[in-house]
């Protein structure tokens, strides 16, 4: 059994590398659109980087939407027990 802080995956250097690799992959997927055309079925979805922007903004909206709904609907998890 490895010690909690000793696992290579959670070392700060690894995590920093993961972020670097992650950002590079993101950049590559957008830049690849210069070479591979994305067929836009409705015009706008063929724009450069549309998938990236659309995915990111949808998620931001959903996270904050959920946050707002949570304000109304969240209750302590023993709500129905008491």
């Amino acid at each position: 059994m490895t010690q909690p802080d000793d696992h290579w995956l959670i070392r700060p250097t690894t995590i920093r590398w993961l972020w670097i690799i992650g950002y590079s992959v993101l950049a590559i997927t957008v830049l690849l659109q210069l070479v591979i055309p994305v067929k836009g079925y409705f015009g706008i979805d063929g724009w450069f980087g549309f998938g990236a922007l659309f995915g990111f903004l949808s998620c931001v909206l959903m996270v904050f939407g959920a946050k707002f709904i949570g304000k109304l609907l969240k209750r302590p998890d023993d709500y129905y027990d008491v």
């Binding site: 995915g55 990111f56 996270v63």
Partner: peptide, 25 residues
């Protein structure tokens, strides 16, 4: 693009996604 940038959104928004001891009505 769609999925990987959703992943980016997840990790950037992690502070807003902290789990709480709650249920939703």
């Amino acid at each position: 693009q769609l999925l990987l940038f959703s992943g980016l959104a997840f990790f950037l928004l992690l502070p807003w996604m902290k789990r709480t001891l709650t249920i939703s009505l």
